[in-house]
Amino acid sequence: MSPGDPLLRWDWFPGHLDEIAFRLAQHVAFTVVAVAVGFGIAFVLALLAIRWRALYGPITAVAGVLYAIPSVALFFLFIGITGLSFLTAEIALVGYTLLILVRNIVAGVDGVAAEVREAAEGMGYGRWRRLWRVELPIALPVIIAGLRVATVSTIGLVAVTALLGRDQGGLGVFIVEGRERFFATPLVVGAVLSVALAIAADGLFVFAQRLVTPWARGQGS
């Protein structure tokens, strides 16, 4: 990356289109798996916390510690256990999503107006039916907001997993490569594409939310 080199060398692209596609797909796959698994675990944890309030503190404390450990440290911590693998990367990525997701699911359900809860109970909803049919649907906007944040930050972190080797890392691999070879083009490509991916994912969630919560439109709250 000596001064005078152009930021983008267009002749780099023709030979690398396949790799760009592969890394992009890998990036998406890692993100989807991390967010999906993270959501599944967070959902169960949140249900436990909703049912037994006393568990909320310990659950968020553990999730908070996972979240607070610097990502690189967390990755290398797990290398010792699970090796330089897909699993290592995913464990760390999933760990990162938990705090945000648990907190938003619980906050969404807590945010259901007391009178709505009482009306549901008074009309003959049992506890679980009320949770599934009334509280969780009403919590959806807050839950989806949590998914948005978790997804966007996961997309950023997937790039960091490139430090664990070329089997993962998605677009991050270009960034690492560019840095190692003092060559700006892949670095810029990796960075720009991850940002674009984050923006696209975010937009997808906004769209999905409009679709599944038509009632929340123009509600002002």
Binding site: E115, R117, E118, A119, A120, T213
Partner: peptide, 9 residues
């Protein structure tokens, strides 16, 4: 109920 409590969704 006193505060109506319609289901917003």
């Amino acid at each position: 109920i006193q505060q109506i409590g319609l289901f917003p969704h």
